[in-house]
Write a protein that binds this DNA or RNA. Structure first.
Length: 268
DNA sequence: AACGGGGTCAACCGCGTCATG
DNA sequence: ACATGACGCGGTTGACCCCGT
């Protein structure tokens, strides 16, 4: 038995994407929309795994992505979402417009984790480290800490909505001595509740996903819904926008992008 | 100027889940 | 109900960059 490889390993390129490959992928998706990632490499003329194409697109080439560091507000939201959802990065990302799960995961591991540790907060349980240490001292059961872990790791959700009585958010009220940050989040519980527990991603304008396949962006009259914000194009790679075949863009847009592109060329 | 160490982030890997036949 | 295939997710890796010595 065993699992079949997601793609034919022979002749499949790995490693960093080149500008040429990005162009091909963008061109293909702009023309055909997102469909059947497995078929994308072949159809787009890429020697890449479909999975790799999807990842490249969702994490880097997607037009609705924000670039750059997370803002303070975004960071706070991530912390609170993590307290509630655990390492469900995709769920967290869904509530942060323009951010990817990979980006948030990386930011968590490189910035937020350390920040929380500095503040004396366990980044896994969102409990005060002092409190946890005391708890461990007072309890000879190793189970206790394991339970804490399990609440976040086994099913991902630290506390379900059915059990709001013991949400980490409320727990954080009990550890406010250690965390002004979480305190501030706790104080805005109603806002967070409204943000967090609506099933549909409330913050994301996911219009990109609705770009219809085929007849979309560049073959004539209809522009994609994100067309009035094309600043991402020169930003996303160090290749020229003209290479994408963006004939649909008007002169003003092209001029704007050319200007940006000029600046970007220095990077290349 | 050269080197080393730490930080950052894009990309890969393997598994779980879901859809379909 | 089961098998299979495709997609999506989270963990991990490795290359690159920056900064201090």
């Amino acid at each position: 038995m065993g699992r079949q490889p997601c793609c034919d390993k022979l002749g499949v390129k790995k490693g960093p994407w080149t500008g040429e490959e990005d162009k091909k992928l963008i061109n293909f998706i702009l023309t055909n929309g997102q469909c059947c990632w497995r078929a994308v490499p072949k159809l787009a003329g890429l020697r890449r795994c479909g999975k790799s194409c999807r990842l490249r697109w969702t994490n880097y080439l997607r037009p609705d992505l924000k670039r750059g560091l997370l803002s303070e507000a975004e960071e706070q939201l991530v912390i609170d979402l993590h307290a509630r959802l655990g390492n469900r990065w995709s769920k967290i990302a869904a509530r942060l417009p323009g951010r990817t799960d990979n980006e948030i995961k990386n930011h968590w591991n490189t910035h937020i984790k350390k920040k929380l540790l500095k503040m004396g907060i366990d980044p896994v349980t969102h409990e005060s480290l002092n409190k946890e240490a005391k708890a461990e001292e007072s309890s000879s059961h190793a189970d206790h800490s394991a339970d804490n872990q399990n609440t976040t790791e086994n099913d991902g959700i630290v506390n379900s909505s059915e059990d709001n009585s013991s949400t980490p958010t409320e727990n954080c009220s009990s550890t406010t001595d250690d965390s002004n940050l979480l305190d501030s989040i706790c104080n805005d519980e109603s806002l967070l509740t409204s943000l967090l527990w609506m099933d549909e991603p409330p913050l994301v304008d996911a219009s990109w996903n609705s770009v219809p396949a085929g007849e979309t962006a560049c073959n004539g009259t209809s522009l994609p819904p994100w067309e009035d914000d094309c600043a991402w194009l020169p930003d996303c790679q160090d290749f020229g926008i003209h290479d994408f075949g963006f004939d649909c863009l008007n002169d003003i847009e092209l001029n704007t992008m050319n200007t940006l592109e000029m600046g970007d060329k220095t990077v290349a």
